[in-house]
Nucleic acid binder design. Structure first.
Lengths: 360, 360
DNA sequence: CTGAAAGCGCTAACAT
DNA sequence: ATGTTAGCGCTTTCAG
């Protein structure tokens, strides 16, 4: 006994076959139109397109994947999505991805190298077309290279993926730090401390390097204070440094978090900025001009960083699809020193006098 | 002539069939083990599990999707990923999703209702198991209900999806505003202005409502100033209000952005806070205690909001899978007024005297 | 409790 | 230029 195909009541999305029937052509013709293969007569293409429009046909990603195609998704891995900088990167990435028809799979590695690689592998399993990653691996993981070898485009940004030949987009961490520190030096500060944490992270290393460079070049002795993870740590350092014979007259902080702790701790202690200690730091932030005194910072652009990274990734995805080969690119983005009042050397004022205890 | 299957040199991921062969069972048994069907003898299950481990088998999502299953992905739609509040939500969502084996597809609607629905549909096409959305639609879109009817779990958070029976997780916008405004009133402020923009957004409407409630209850006349989209707008309002006969002695700002503009504009103008005008606003922020004077704000918790939303979503996904039905839940989360110096009524000080021009 | 067959929607490879 | 065939890896019947 024969069973007739019951018209299912569900609202399935139409298939390529239904389009073919409506357009009175074979399925392959429809497939060709969709993937705009050249060998389809314009008139046929038109018919097919009409049928597609009429039925509201949409490609079935699952079926394409099963045939070995790549998904129209890209993966994004950052250390922490709630960090304003990475959040801004994520926003930009997602925006550009969408504009190019990709969806964005996002995950935070929570600064865990293993989790990062593991998630990259999961994304690769899902056949993403490309991967954008702010790595937390000390040395580029070998498993990432494996993924790359299977034809996955990877672009590292903010931090390079060492030991693996990937494209990367970085910012001028060292030069930025040099500019800021030199600025302090130019304004007669001699005892400049450098505070931060995460000293095994590329960006911090570079910035620290920049600090040391300028200090040494000026004949000054660097005082690097790493490991300041919490507000408590910073408080403790300030307390100790207050008792020291030679207190720093200026501080260069290596990132936003440290700057924040510093501001907080200094405020609690009642130390005057910049009279008793001048401040400058890496990473600008929205409220930097609004705190008192306005905070001098090295500004980088997450939007620019993400935009360039996505552009590179899309280029690579296209290239790989067309079977081209490349040598990894390395892009360096400039930063800008925003001089405000916290460094005691606002451009509208004269350079600071040598007197370290001046009041205004 | 027969073609022998060439052992492909590619590193394909092992299939269910290979596992079956290795374990010397049929494919269905393997499938059952994977989906932990009850009807598999423990000894067989063990064999299969061993084979799976040995081969490093991983489920092929594409094949499952093609058979009509749902993807182990959830979708997240927020207005703006670079907004600290939504970024924090996204971080939390992604974290919990990962802990439950889901990946997260994320997109910013850029406050465009149409884009929002369109992206929701794309995610549904990709067969996500659930959708978390901070809606920008004025009235819940009908297309969203369609999606819901196809078996997609949707949870709205921060703003409700009106006109559609979805679960939602909101915060006490109205009560929060009431608390803040009442606090100002209790401290003898009479002319309290309420500034903001986005007055067609649910949260803003609720907060405005809360403001009006308390003003009216105290016999004061509300002065609501909407449409303040830019710093320029706020500057202009201040300028105008300075000339007015009855200047406000206090301002309640409806969200973080407005607070920021206000702080900026007030600083430029040299108006003293809280002596000339007291400030309180909705949305706390990291640097609120650090600006001068420290800013009084109504704090909400994005982490809590996202956590509750994800819990609800996961519950619904499980429920739907087991064929249960529900009545939509509505969860209201509390907020907290963080009293600092900008409102001129720090708890450590005595309530403000009526004199509006007091200097300290 | 276990297995064989059928087919989800698509595309690569081969006809025509 | 267009059509036909054969799976991709899995799960849903249906038989044992």
């Amino acid at each position: 006994m024969l069973k007739l195909a019951m018209p299912k009541h569900e609202d399935r999305t139409p298939t390529i076959r239904e389009v073919a029937n409506l357009a009175r052509v074979g399925l392959m013709t429809v497939s060709r139109v969709i993937n705009n293969h050249p060998s389809v007569r314009p008139s046929t293409r038109k018919k097919v397109l009409a049928a597609i429009a009429q039925l509201g046909y949409r490609q079935n990603e699952a079926a394409r994947l099963l045939k070995g195609q790549r998904a129209t998704m890209i993966g994004l891995i950052v250390p922490d999505l709630s960090d304003a900088f990475f959040a801004s990167c994520a926003h930009t990435v997602q925006h550009i991805a969408r504009a190019h028809g990709y969806m964005t799979l996002v995950v935070a590695s929570e600064r865990d190298a293993d989790l990062e690689v593991q998630q990259a592998e999961l994304m690769a399993n899902r056949k993403v077309s490309g991967l954008l990653v702010v790595t937390s691996t000390a040395q580029g993981d070998d498993r990432l290279r494996k993924l790359q070898e299977t034809g996955l485009s990877i672009v590292a940004f903010d931090r390079p993926l060492t030991g693996i030949g990937t494209d990367c987009v970085l910012i001028e961490n060292r030069a930025g730090a040099e500019t800021a520190v030199q600025h302090l030096i130019d304004h007669r500060y001699r005892r400049i401390a450098c505070l931060g944490y995460d000293e095994d992270v590329y960006t911090i290393q570079e910035r620290t390097q920049g600090y040391s460079n300028r200090m040494l070049a000026a004949g000054l002795s660097p005082e690097i204070v790493p490991g300041l993870l919490t507000l408590e740590d910073v408080r403790a350092w300030i307390k100790k440094s207050l008792k020291a014979e030679k207190q720093p007259t200026a501080i260069f902080s290596l990132n936003h978090r440290t700057s924040t702790f510093l501001l907080q701790a200094l405020k609690e202690t009642g130390i005057k900025i910049p009279e008793q200690v001048a401040l400058a730091g890496f990473d600008d932030f929205e409220l930097a001009p609004l705190i008192s005194p306005p905070f001098t910072a090295v500004a980088q652009s997450p939007v620019e960083l993400a935009t360039r990274s996505m552009a590179l990734l899309l280029e690579r995805i296209r290239g790989l699809r067309d079977g081209k080969t490349f040598t990894p690119a390395k892009i360096l983005l400039p930063v800008e020193l925003r001089i405000r009042a916290s460094c005691g050397a606002h451009p509208k004022l004269n350079p600071r006098t040598p007197s370290p205890t001046r009041r205004h």
